[in-house]
Design a protein around this nucleic acid. Structure first.
Lengths: 155, 155
DNA sequence: TATTGTTATACTCTATAACTATA
DNA sequence: TATAGTTATAGAGTATAACAATA
């Protein structure tokens, strides 16, 4: 039936030229799905997932974020942050400290072991990212990050 | 405590300059989350979500994809495609036709009403996408799509 | 009154395994 | 023996509402 002989295993190749294959939202979703899967696989050896890695990363920075800030930044519900911090705190990677300025708020502080684990996890994450970006030149890598930043943080 | 007076409502701004704020995987995830939410909101008026919109889009193209191809292309489990197609078929937007070449496979064909609905939904989706890309120039829009394609379809 | 963190709950999404019919 | 579609089910992820402590 199809004019072109089906030499491909599954025949997905043809779909890339469809309308959807040019749709930015779809490309974003698919790129994210692949990246997330690869990241989770690489982080598993450290007992982390993309979510917990992100929380640990922000704690390891000396930003001292409150849980509310984490929720907003990571686009998570505050109740989800509770579970993530619970897990990291149980593993003694981070600590909750009540903010003296606002005693309702918890500020996240990384522990020494947390910082050490993050350093190792970051290496794994970075290696995976480089693998995914194999087809992208280094300057385009930065260009892509800039463009994504515009989408991720609309003023 | 913080050196900078907290003039911002929540203080998320500082987190953007963190390590994570420069991480491509994170930017991808956040950009995707915002885009997906906006797309779903816009598609709701047509009784669609990003998922069902994608399936309808591929059916509306004359690619005649099998469900297996849809699953692979959309990174969904074949069982999820069943549910999506069930819903679209119940609304008479698409039809399942058994592929004469391989009678195990179902080929998706769009109906006239399906095509009409897709045209309207596509307009909504496109309008939303333009809104999200307000800070991106048209040529950068295309550049972003190209770079995302490299990530979304690794050879 | 409003907000932070928390708990509980329900809902959606995702992943897995088993089954059928075709190949 | 393998593959396409289907079904059922359990797990992960997400969203919502209500509550205690603090502002």
């Amino acid at each position: 039936m199809s004019p072109i002989g089906k030499t491909q295993p599954t025949g997905t190749a043809g779909l890339r030229d469809s309308v959807l294959g040019r749709d930015l939202s779809f490309l974003l979703a698919r790129a994210n799905a692949l990246t997330l899967a690869a990241a989770n696989a690489a982080l598993a050896q450290h007992g982390l997932k993309a979510r917990s890695y992100s929380v640990l990363a922000l704690a390891a920075d000396d930003v001292r974020p409150t849980q509310r800030e984490l929720a907003e930044f990571l686009r998570l519900d505050p109740s989800q942050v509770v579970a993530l911090v619970d897990e990291l705190e149980k593993r003694q990677l981070v600590e909750r400290r009540t903010d003296p300025a606002d005693r309702r708020a918890n500020v996240l502080v990384v522990t020494d072991t947390g910082r050490a684990l993050f350093a190792r996890a970051q290496e794994s994450a970075h290696a995976v990212e480089l693998g995914l970006l194999a087809a992208v030149t280094p300057q385009d890598h930065e260009r892509l990050a800039e463009l994504l930043r515009l989408l991720a943080f609309p003023t």
